[in-house]
Every structure is written in C-alpha cells, then in structure tokens.
Amino acid sequence: MKTYLLPSIKITIILLVILAGLYPLAIAGIGKFTPGHGDGETISYKGKVVGYANIGQKFTKDEYFWSRPSAVDYKADASGGSNKGPSNPDYLKDVEKRIQDFLKRNPGVTRAEIPAELVTASGSGLDPDLSPAGAKVQVLRIAKTRNLTVEQVNKIIDDNTEQPLLGLFGPTKVNVLKLNVALDELKK
C-alpha cells in the first residue's frame, strides 16, 4: 500500500499547485490584456454601465427590442433553460400564450411572421441575441412607440447585424442590448 499511497499524496499536492494554482493565475494574468480585462465586457450608455455585452437582459417595454423568452427571467446568477420536452402539453400552452401576447402587442404582425425564437426560451436563459428576422418583426411596434420611421429602425438593425464568422460559418445575429442602446442614442 505504501508503495502507491505515498507517491499518490505527494504527486497530488504538487499537481494541485501547478494545475489549480499556477495555471489559472497565468490565464488571469493574460486576461488583464483582453478587451474586458478578464472581468467580462460591459456596455455603457451615458457614462453608465448598463449591461454586459454577452449577457442578455430583460426587455419587455414596447419602446425596446424584446429579448427572447427566458426560463429564468434573465437572472444572470441562475442561468438555465426551461428543460421542457418538445411534446410537453404545458410547454406547448406556454408557447401558444406567448404567441397571443406577441400578436396583441404587435398589431399588424401575422402569426406566420413570428420566428420561433421569439416564443421559445433559450438554453441559458441569457441569450443576448436575436436573428435579424426576430428583430425586424418588432420594427412596426418600435417605430410607432418612438415616433420613428420604419426605415430608421430598420437601419439600426442593419447597422448592428453581425455576419457569420468570416462571412461563411454560423448564423447571422443582432445583439439586443446594442440595438436598444442605439435606439436610445437616436432619441437625443
């Protein structure tokens, strides 16, 4: 037993120092030179931090682009999805209710125009993005609430649309927080 136990203990101690101590400290040191200095990238408006670029936040007011539904109500210290199965009757009722709410608050939009992402919860509950279609379907409402033209709002979406990686790989998306900051900046 001693043949194995003693080396086991010693090797564990030294590996703890290297792997759990030095390695992450080195990464933290390098992290200081990254855009968010290792604390996470933030977005400011009028000199005040209003959110993290990568973390979705709740937008439910008519004047803002809405984020996707969140199973955790955008609690960024308790991420998670709904974990409801695709055939779950309660879940399907929730989706139907979201569709009806959306139609009620977005006059002029038809059912077939609503992309599924706006009535289904994301995996993390903190999805910061929408597809361009998910943003465009909200343009009428926002233009009306803010007394803007449809073109002005569409332009904000186009300006903030992020193309796939190298133009070739992955989905096209827009960051909801950046859209809404751009909307507020237009106001002044």
Binding site: S82, A116, E117, T120, A121, S122, K173
Partner: peptide, 8 residues
C-alpha cells in the same frame, strides 16, 4: 427548433 437553443 429553438427551444433550449441559443441564437448565436
């Protein structure tokens, strides 16, 4: 299918 998935 978008339930439980991320747009990005």
């Amino acid at each position: 299918a978008m339930e439980g998935k991320e747009v990005r």
